[in-house]
């Protein structure tokens, strides 16, 4: 039995895949949060950051393809394991109320699937910039000027995007589910890799709770403060205006309208 077939074909191996890809996704979630929190600075801060990422296509596409593979593996093994788990108990009990387990641990598949749906929406919303789904208009028309170059106005996009109540709500619901998913998943990750004993288990569980709460607060603050008009309200008025103007047929989209 080679190591690859040992991982792909055994229940324990698939748990390693879940845990390994989960750990990488956790690292991405932290990095992405640090990037996004720049929205609380001046507009140029996050626009500069976005511009920097955009100017490195090799890095951006490498990361995108890598993340896609990681998410794909995470979902693939989750589905494989869930199918086997369901098949292992064909007749259920009289009372399905389970004993001795947390509800977070029993709803990993559900929370995971909603997060997957959110990721699809989030990519269409802020990466593919599909105009029909954001409740505002065509985000690709939002441009700003950085160091004399034209760049995407990510700040304006976020502000306008989260002023729509249902978008802000959906983002916050998805973050709540990510919190549920991580509060169990971060601890289970250590268990799957066998990196625990009775001394470390309580510490690992505290780490999982603390990290998932911190991530929830960090991410949920962004749509919450923008929707409540605490952040960027003046800027929103300005760019809303420019979006309408730049959408006018006579003007080329590339022209700045400050």
């Amino acid at each position: 039995m080679s190591i690859v077939s040992g991982i792909l074909n055994s229940s324990l191996g698939k748990k390693y895949i879940m845990a390994g890809t989960g750990a990488l996704l956790f690292a991405f979630v932290i990095a992405h949060l640090v990037g996004n929190l720049q929205v609380f600075g001046p507009p140029e801060l996050i626009n500069n950051y976005a511009h920097f990422l955009q100017s490195k296509p090799l890095m951006v596409w490498g990361a995108r393809i890598g993340l896609l593979v990681i998410v794909g593996l995470h979902v693939w093994s989750a589905v494989q394991l869930s199918v086997a788990n369901r098949a292992a108990r064909p007749v259920s009990y009289h009372d399905t109320e389970p004993y001795g387990s947390t509800w977070q641990s029993r709803y990993m598949l559900v929370s995971g699937l909603v997060i997957a749906a959110f990721i699809a929406y989030h990519l269409a919303h802020f990466t593919a910039l599909l105009p029909g789904i954001n409740g505002v208009g065509d985000f690709s028309k939002l441009k700003t000027e950085l160091h004399g170059e034209e760049a995407r106005d990510v700040y304006g996009m976020m502000i306008l995007g989260f002023q729509v109540w249902w978008v802000a709500l959906f983002y916050m619901v998805a973050q709540a589910l990510l919190f549920i998913h991580l509060s169990h998943g971060l601890a289970a990750m250590f268990q799957s890799f066998g990196l625990r004993d009775h001394v470390w288990w309580p510490r690992i569980q505290i780490f999982a709770k603390a990290a998932s709460i911190a991530i929830f607060i960090g991410y949920a603050l962004i749509p919450a403060t923008i929707y409540l008009r605490v952040v960027g309200t003046d800027y929103a008025e300005k760019v809303k205006h420019s979006m309408v103007e730049s959408a006018a047929p006579t003007k080329p989209a590339s022209k700045e309208t400050h």
Partner: peptide, 17 residues
Amino acid sequence: DTEGFGSCTVTGSCEAV
């Protein structure tokens, strides 16, 4: 795995019973 048992999702039910 051959016997058709499921896998561990670390719910802790087993330890509890």
